[in-house]
Design a protein around this nucleic acid. Structure first.
Lengths: 240, 240
DNA sequence: AGGACACTGTGTATCATAGATACAGTTTTA
DNA sequence: TAAAACTGTATCTATGATACACAGTGTCCT
C-alpha cells in the first residue's frame, strides 16, 4: 500500500476488453478470467480477507509477482472479481408490471449477493463497472420504462431498491441491522437489558420476533412509496 | 494484522465505562476520550485511511505502543472514534407527527454523517455500539411510538431510513450512486456513450439533471411507503 | 528463409507500511 | 517496599508494491 496510481482508465480497459493484444513474448500461462475465477473461489470459501496477491498467485501455482502481469494491482483484481461473480441480470421481459419486475429484480440481486457474500461490500465507492455489472442497473431501468417517472427518478428508484438489498445483506453488512446474530449481538442485548431505563424502546423491541423479513418489509415499503410516486406523476400528466 | 482476538466484550467494557479503575502505577498522560478526539480530528481532516496507530500516537506525542494501553487494537480505536463523533441524537419531542419526526431524524443523521464523512463506512458490520450511538436508534423508535406498527416493524422502518441516508452519502459510498463526480464517473459516462447500443437506458439517463436530490427522492418514497403500512395497520386494528 | 532484437511472462530480491507482540525501564500508589 | 501500570525500543508478520535479471516467443529486417 505505497504508491500505485489507482488508474481508473486502466481498469476500464481491462474490464471492457480494450487491452491492446500482445504481439511478441511468451504465451501467458493463464488469462485474466482464470485469475478472476480463482480469486472468486477463494473469496467465496474463506472471505474477502483471504484474497491476497500472494494467495491467489499460489492458488494458480505462480509467484505473486507474476500476478501483476495480469492485473495492475489489487484494485484491478477486485474489479475483475466483481465482473466475474456478478453474473447476468434477470430478463424481466416475461414479467408484467413495473412492480412485479422490480420485485423480481430485487430477488435476483439478493440471490447473486447471497451466492457471493463479499460482493455487496465491494460494489461500493467511486469505481468503474464492467459490462456485465453495468447490465444490472440497465435491466432494472427497463422495469420502470413504462412508468411516468422521469429518467432521473427511475435511476434513483433503481438505486433505492439496490441499496436496500445491499443493506439487508447481513453477511456483508450486519451492523446495519443492529441484531445480526454475530458475537456482538448478544453483548448488545445484554447491554440494552442492563440499561433498559435509558433505552426502553430498544430494550423491549429487540426481543420481538417478526412475521416478515426485514428485507421484505423494507422492499414492500419502498415499492409502495414508488407506486405512490408513479400514480402521482400519472395524475399530473393527465391533468396537463 | 496477525492475531488480536477482536474481543467484543472488551470493546463493550470500554465504550460503556465498565473498565476497572486503575489502582497503582503511573498516571496515564491522556484518557481514552482524548485519544478518540485526536483520531477523529485526523479522520476528519485527512480521511480514515490516515488514521493509523502510528499517526494517532504521534499526534499525541506518544509512540504507537503507548497507544495500546488505551485501546486494545485498531478495532477498539475505531469504536471509540465512532462514539466520540456520532454526537447526540435529535430531540423529536417538539416535532408533531411520526412522519415529520422521522424526516427530522433523517436530516440530523445526514448532518452528523456529513460532518464526519468516514462515519457511514465504519458504522457497519457486526459490532458493539456505545451508549451515545445507541441513543440514535432509540430516538428514531420514539418517532414511531404512536403508530400501529409492531415493534419489529418500527425497528425495520428505522433501519430502512438510516440505511437510505447511509447509502446516499456520496462521500463515503459514492459507488452506490453510479454518478458521483469521482474520477471513475467520467470514464463510466464515456463507456456508456461508447456502448449506447447495449445500454440505451443508462446512456440516456445519465445526462438528465434532477430537480430533487437522490436522497430526497428516496426518503420521500420510503416515508410514503411507511405511511401506507401505518394506515394499513390502523385500518386492520379498526376492523377488529 | 533465417537470425537479431524487442517484447513479454516469470522468478528472486527487496522495500515500505501496517498492525501487533515481547520485554525492559520507570513511575506511582496501595 | 513491592505490585501494578505507563512508556519506549526492538522485533515479527503480513500486505501491497517496485526493481531487476532471466527466459521464451514472435516480428521484422536482411
Amino acid at each position: 500500500m505505497v504508491a500505485n496510481e489507482e488508474d481508473p482508465g486502466a481498469v476500464a480497459e481491462l474490464l471492457w476488453g480494450l487491452r491492446k493484444p500482445r504481439s511478441r513474448g511468451p504465451r501467458p500461462a493463464f488469462d485474466v478470467a482464470q485469475v478472476a475465477d480463482t480469486a472468486v473461489k477463494v473469496a467465496d470459501a474463506e472471505g474477502l480477507e483471504a484474497v491476497s496477491m500472494q494467495r491467489v498467485a499460489a492458488e494458480l501455482g505462480l509467484t505473486k509477482m507474476a500476478l501483476y502481469r495480469y492485473v495492475n494491482g489489487k484494485a484491478e483484481l477486485i474489479a475483475v472479481m466483481v465482473e466475474a461473480a456478478v453474473g447476468t441480470p434477470p430478463d424481466l421481459s416475461g414479467v408484467t408490471g413495473w412492480r412485479a419486475k422490480l420485485e423480481e429484480y430485487a430477488r435476483q440481486l439478493s440471490a447473486a449477493w447471497r451466492r457471493h457474500p463479499w460482493l455487496p461490500s465491494v460494489t461500493v465507492g467511486d469505481r468503474v463497472m464492467g459490462p456485465r455489472e453495468t447490465s444490472w442497473p440497465e435491466s432494472a431501468l427497463s422495469a420502470l420504462a413504462d412508468t411516468a417517472l422521469t429518467e432521473r427518478e427511475r435511476l434513483d428508484a433503481v438505486m433505492l431498491v439496490s441499496n436496500h438489498i445491499r443493506a439487508t445483506h447481513a453477511a456483508a453488512t450486519p451492523g446495519t441491522q443492529i441484531w445480526t446474530g454475530g458475537s456482538a449481538t448478544s453483548i448488545m442485548r445484554d447491554l440494552l437489558l442492563l440499561n433498559a431505563d435509558r433505552f426502553p424502546l430498544l430494550a423491549t423491541t429487540q426481543a420481538t420476533p417478526s412475521a416478515t423479513t426485514t428485507q421484505e418489509f423494507g422492499l414492500r415499503a419502498i415499492l409502495d412509496g414508488l407506486e405512490h410516486a408513479v400514480t402521482q406523476h400519472t395524475r399530473n400528466s393527465a391533468d396537463a
